[in-house]
Design a protein around this nucleic acid. Structure first.
Lengths: 334, 334
DNA sequence: TTGAAAGCGCTAACAG
DNA sequence: CTGTTAGCGCTTTCAA
């Protein structure tokens, strides 16, 4: 493979020292206009590009930030990422992405990959499987910039950006109740996730506010957040036995999973159950039966999260006070 | 930020030279068992990790491969990526991903980013906007491993993995014709894309095989592949004026875009037009009206592409013969 | 079997 | 204003 031009090459060609060339390229004030022009022109002519690896090795910095999500075949995450990119690119940061497929092991692997490559900081939404947070804790302790969004850990100190999960849930349940539904079930994700618990709380509060009774048998958890067909199927079957007339669902994959399993039951009256669910799907309006969606301000979350991250990257001192930003959800009847 | 342990640290602690430590860590045969054990044990104890940046600088290799797609809020691409990851991880390669949003400029930026970071090779599906291929050409000429998939350039020599676009299209049109449809339109993407042309050809062949006449007015191109609502809206409006009874659509985004725009026309009888389209959506079965989908073997494509890439990475000689792998499509009525 | 030294490409402290 | 030198962390040739 063809070698690329280096500062040395320029220095040699121009009869200068590498340091002078380096300084000229970075527009240092201690270099004469004449030399600068000479170097810059030549660099342009041979299409010189600085080697970012050498730079990273030297500076322990890569002008890149990493995002780790569970699956990006998910409009929510891709909207978040769009938000992140918009701010990051404006600040001259590159964005690199990887996914965990809800595996705690791959999560750690991915973090380690970014960290060891001098990625300047990471935005992360936890995998459903994650329980051991010591690795992330140790990075935070080292002062490595890390911002959690969406699925955030409850037991870890760090910057966080989340939706107003409780209120979003209350609104959804409220809507179902106002439609005259009496037996509203709740299908949700992993018990170990903070947002799961928040949404369950919202669900309960919504019921209470509408004079409906809470029953444990109406709440079903899917530990992999709907990643596996069977776990959703099991939950749905159990719920159907309870003869529910509405359901509030706590996640994209779960929402579509629920609908698909319902469809498979051909003798089942699809309109019997009114569905409201967290989803940022771009095609939810094509679904039949129609559903109510709780939409997260994903783009906004991405922007907030990366701003927090960049701030942290640029600040010299280790921040001891961590922020939590809460963004609103929107109930959408269409 | 906390410094990490280096080979030097180990050497100092163990009273060895850095080179010995390095060799011991890489299990070189010229190191005694005793020393190896000593080093390995100590390295483990302090949790030593080799610095991949230093390695990359030295070896011009990163054990990473990059994927560039237009948008990954797209089940097709995420399935491809899953295929890529399955093979890559099995071969100890990390996978890094970025998206172009159909912008040729970002595409070049992303390629440059990967290339300059010593990413060992790139898998790419072209942006809709791409017309100038000289940058990629120059990389290929340098011997940089590059494999195209899905949206491949027609005018560039290189490894390619594509669907059997022509046959997939023929099958779709055939199905529509057999359902008694007479005026079958075609909604498709950017004219500059090879796959667009292949699909148009398949469309024509499908019509011909069924004794239907081809008419230019029934074919509409969207230069951004459905990324922008207006371009699709314009195309749909024009098609509706033609009083069509079926449409064959050449892409995920276009397919859902078409359906959404139809939905917006509330007075329009949704079942009047039978829709068949390329899509790998996981939720297409929830759509109403029902559509016929041409599904690409995305996971398979990813696997094939990355295998080609890894082969290229590992081979010393510049391969002068480039392969094109064609994977089948599947017509799915549900 | 081990060590010394050079070098990957870049920057920065120090010297002139 | 410019050059010399050392060093980021690692591997590898050459010498011992």
């Amino acid at each position: 493979m063809n070698k690329n031009y280096t500062i040395k090459d320029i220095a040699k060609a121009l009869n200068l020292s590498p340091s002078t060339v380096s300084r000229a390229l970075r527009d240092s004030h201690e270099i004469s206009q004449k030399t600068k022009k000479l170097v810059l022109d030549f660099a342009k002519k041979i299409n010189y590009r600085t080697n970012p690896i050498a730079l990273s090795l030297k500076e322990r910095k890569s002008y890149s930030i990493g995002i780790i999500v569970s699956e990006f075949a998910n409009n929510f995450f891709s909207q978040v990422i769009d938000g992140v990119e918009s701010v990051a690119n404006a600040n001259n940061y590159q964005v690199v992405i990887s996914q965990t497929h809800e595996s705690a092991q791959r999560e750690e692997q991915n973090i380690e990959y970014f960290y060891s490559r001098a990625i300047d900081g990471i935005l992360i939404s936890l995998s459903a499987e994650t329980s051991d947070l010591s690795y992330m804790q140790s990075l935070i302790d080292k002062g490595y910039p890390l911002v959690f969004f969406d699925r955030v850990p409850s037991s870890l100190k760090g910057h966080k950006v989340i939706s107003d999960n409780r209120n979003g849930s209350i609104e959804a349940v409220h809507y179902l109740a106002k439609k005259g539904k009496k037996k509203i079930a709740h299908l949700t994700g992993s018990k170990s996730l903070f947002i799961t618990n928040e949404r369950v709380k919202g669900y309960k509060m919504g019921l209470m506010a509408n004079g409906l009774e809470y029953s444990e048998s109406l709440v079903k958890h899917c530990e992999y957040g709907g990643l596996h067909h069977q776990e959703v199927e099991k939950a749905v079957d159990e719920l159907l036995r309870e003869d529910i007339d509405a359901v509030f669902i706590s996640g994209d994959k779960l929402t579509t999973g629920f609908l698909q399993i319902l469809r498979e039951k051909e003798d089942f009256d699809q309109d019997k159950i009114l569905v409201a669910g967290f989803t940022n799907s771009n095609v939810v309006n094509l679904f039949s039966p129609k559903i109510i969606s709780v939409r997260q301000s994903a783009f906004e979350m991405g922007k907030n999260a990366v701003e927090l991250l960049i701030e942290q990257i640029n600040s010299k001192e280790e921040s001891l006070s961590f922020k939590t930003i809460i963004v609103p959800t929107v109930l959408s009847k269409e």
